[in-house]
Each structure stands twice: as structure tokens, then as C-alpha cells.
Simulated scan of single mutants.
Amino acid sequence: MVDPRIKVDFDGHLAAITVARPERLNALDIDMLKALSAACDEVEANAEIRVAILTGEGKAFSAGGDIKAWGGMTPNEFGHAWVRFGHRVFERLATLRMPLIAAINGHALGGGLELAIAADIRIAERHVKIGLPETGLGMVPGWSGTQRLVRRAGAQVVRRMVLGGEVFSADEAAALGLVDHVVDTGQALAAARDCAARIAARGPAALEVAKLMIATANGEDNGTAVEALGSILVAKTGDLREGLAAFSEKRATKFAGEW
């Protein structure tokens, strides 16, 4: 079922995914998480897409998980239907085959920061505030804030947010490596589109493979990345073509070791 609060737009080689629930600061609920996962499938299925942008509608990027969506859950529901499912969705975003740019047009707190950190490149507007306030509610970050965020920005930065409750400005976040570029208010999406144009001009196969190689070097799901790289390589060989032909023709294979 399509959820209008998650929008997907295509423009040439560019896809834009927009979290569109401005009246709730783009806070996510279960249906939106499902739609976000479906959006990833839709973007990846479009062979023309070489780069994607993730942003929020209105004055926020995302306030994270909607407390009304999970506040009444049992511990079991919270752990599985909410935290683990959300983690899988964010992992889906992080492992898109094409580079993903987060245009952080407003505050990114809690799950909103975890959403942004799934992107390969983050561009934040100067007024933005960034933090992980979960421990103030008696909970912990559950959508990769203590995992992917540590790998990408460093453990000490995460300690300051999670343990110390620090909230950073965009400029502070850039100095700490939480975001890559800071732009004036209202300019994040335009800057992301400029960045996307530069990326889209590069070799799409090289982009996809390089993204996997960097993820492997950073310790991000090494097994998946290695299998993906190996599968892509083998799929382009003459051996696979011969294997498929032999299967179809019901004959013995004649592998030539053609790369």
C-alpha cells in the first residue's frame, strides 16, 4: 500500500525520496517505515537511477520515531516490530546500490539523525540541530545510532550525544564529521542536486562497486558487500553465459574461463 507521506520522484538519473509529514516534523510510524522500504525497492528497480537524495518536507528533516507510534507497545512489540524492523529499513537505505545524499533541511534528532547517517553524503542547512536524545527518555538509540554512526563519525562523538546529551549545530556537526557540508538555510536540496549531478556524471558501475568497497573497508556488513561484489563480477563472465546456455540446452558445460 502506497503511503503518501513517503514521496518518490524521478528526474533523469536522479531519484528523490521525501519524508512528507511536516505537521509531525516528519516523525516516522510503522506505515511510513514500510513505505520507505518500498521506496528503496522502487528506486533500485529503475535502471536509469545513478544517485538518490533523501530529504524532509517542511521545516524538519525528521524528528525520528513518532512516540505515539511506539509508546504503547509491549516490550516484545517494541523490540521486534519497531526497533528491529526500523533497523532493517535503515539498513536498506544505507545499502542502496547507488550513492545516497541526505539533504538535511531541518533538525535531525534521534531516529532522524540515524536516518541521515544512512546516507553516503550529508548536506545540512546552517540552522539545523543534530543529536541523539534517547537516553533522556530512558531508552537507547535503536536504528543504528550506536553502530553505523560510530563507524562513520567516531565513538567519542556518539558518546557526547548519547551519554552527555549534547546537541550540535550544523557547523559543529561538520567539524566533528557528522555532516559533510553546511549551506545556508533553504539551500540543502539545491546543494544536494548539484552534488548529485557531479556524481551522476561518473561511471555508474564504478560508483556501485566503489560504494561496496568503501563499506567493506569501514566494517559495514562485510559479508554482504563481499558477496555482492563477487556476484556482480561472476555475472559478467563468459562462464555464467555458458552455464546458463548449457542448462537451457540440456548439455554438458564447456567452461573457457572467460572473464
Results as ranks from 00 to 15, higher is better:
186 G>Q: 02
221 D>I: 10
240 L>D: 01
219 G>M: 07
173 A>Y: 01
238 G>M: 10
148 R>T: 11
162 V>F: 05
173 A>K: 01
149 L>Y: 10
230 G>S: 12
224 T>A: 14
173 A>I: 03
192 A>V: 03
196 A>G: 02
187 Q>G: 04
209 V>H: 10
214 I>C: 09
182 V>P: 03
219 G>V: 05
227 E>Y: 10
176 L>C: 02
212 L>F: 03
237 T>F: 07
159 R>H: 15
204 P>F: 06
214 I>S: 11
240 L>A: 06
173 A>F: 00
146 T>D: 06
170 A>I: 04
190 A>Y: 05
217 A>N: 10
207 L>V: 08
185 T>R: 13
191 A>C: 04
228 A>H: 11
187 Q>I: 01
212 L>E: 05
152 R>H: 06
194 D>Q: 14
210 A>Y: 11
165 G>L: 07
218 N>Q: 15
180 D>L: 01
182 V>I: 01
175 A>T: 05
186 G>D: 00
193 R>A: 04
155 A>M: 12
169 S>F: 02
155 A>W: 12
182 V>W: 03
204 P>H: 05
239 D>L: 08
164 G>R: 00
206 A>M: 13
154 G>V: 06
183 V>G: 02
200 A>S: 07
145 G>Y: 05
227 E>M: 13
195 C>M: 15
154 G>N: 07
222 N>Q: 13
163 L>K: 11
163 L>Q: 14
234 V>L: 14
235 A>R: 11
188 A>F: 00
